[in-house]
């Protein structure tokens, strides 16, 4: 099995505060790898380093053997990494369909001239893309909401629309930042089942952030634990759950 994402000694600090401190991570193809840790452990910062929003001060990030450090975010997306956000970040004044079409941006070609002249190739591309976007909407259960503005969707729908937008990019690696935040136990179970399903249907490798470790235990192939920016443990869910250091990190202080 080949390696999709590998980070070595990734470090990011903010004015002396080490948000991510020498983190190594290896994610094999088709795995569901979870990064867990208490709030403020540096999980999102780590995500932001991988997706190019931050440039780490030190360390290497390789995606399918290509270095990602210093690569602009749009090229990282183009290379096949898509993500969702902890605080939902849809384009609020665009419709659900348009949000997905934006997610498909880097797989489409129509440029300035094509948009104005509209040759048949551009028309066809637009039709195919809309068709695919509708399929994705159907997949996440939002079939009737194609023309609803994203901001008018209920919270759970927004979360799923974000996943659909990410899938539209035909990603190899899908990064989900607390996809179950704010969900009740039933919704959480549904989301986890959904994640397993899209992993198989789209042949994805998935990197998952969670602060509640129970959520990820059922689905993860591997779990890494961050605390104060440092990776303190790694292994199978069972190994991590039994690890005394992890228990201390979680129980030593209230998880919010």
């Amino acid at each position: 099995m080949s390696i999709v994402l590998e980070t070595r000694q990734v470090t990011k600090n903010f004015g002396g505060l080490m948000a991510v401190n020498r983190v190594d991570l290896v994610v094999p193809e088709r795995a569901i790898a979870s990064v867990i840790g208490p709030n403020g452990a540096g999980k999102t910062t780590f995500f932001n380093c991988v997706s190019g929003f931050y440039t780490p001060e030190e360390g290497q990030i390789e995606f399918q053997g290509q270095s990602l450090v210093g690569v602009p975010p749009y090229q990282i997306a183009r290379a096949g990494i898509a993500r969702t956000y902890q605080n939902i970040r849809l384009f609020p004044a665009m419709t659900a369909l348009e949000n997905i079409l934006v997610g498909r941006h880097s797989r489409l070609k129509t440029g300035l001239i094509g948009a104005i002249v509209r040759p048949s190739a551009a028309v066809r591309e637009e039709q195919t893309a809309s068709q695919y976007a509708l399929e994705l909407l159907d997949l996440v259960g939002l079939m009737g909401e194609a023309n609803t503005l994203a901001r008018n969707l209920p919270y759970g729908d927004q979360r799923r629309l974000e996943v659909a937008r990410a899938l539209a990019n035909d990603p190899t690696l899908l990064m989900l930042d607390e996809p179950t935040a704010g969900m009740n136990p039933q919704e959480t179970r549904d989301m986890m089942a959904f994640i397993l399903r899209i992993r198989d249907e789209f042949s994805l490798t998935i990197l998952l952030i969670e602060h509640d470790m129970r959520v990820v235990m059922g689905v993860s192939d591997q779990v890494s634990v961050l605390d104060y920016g440092v990776k303190i443990a790694e292994g199978t869910p069972a190994e991590v759950q039994a690890n005394p250091i992890v228990i201390e990190a979680y129980l030593g202080r209230p998880t919010e």
Binding site: S51, G52, F53, P72, P73, Y74, Q75, I76, A77, R78, A82, R83, Y85, R89, F91, V102, G103, H105, S106, R165, N169
Partner: peptide, 9 residues
């Protein structure tokens, strides 16, 4: 920011 991370240059 999100536009950039969604693949828009």
């Amino acid at each position: 920011d999100v536009a950039r991370m969604t693949g828009i240059n």
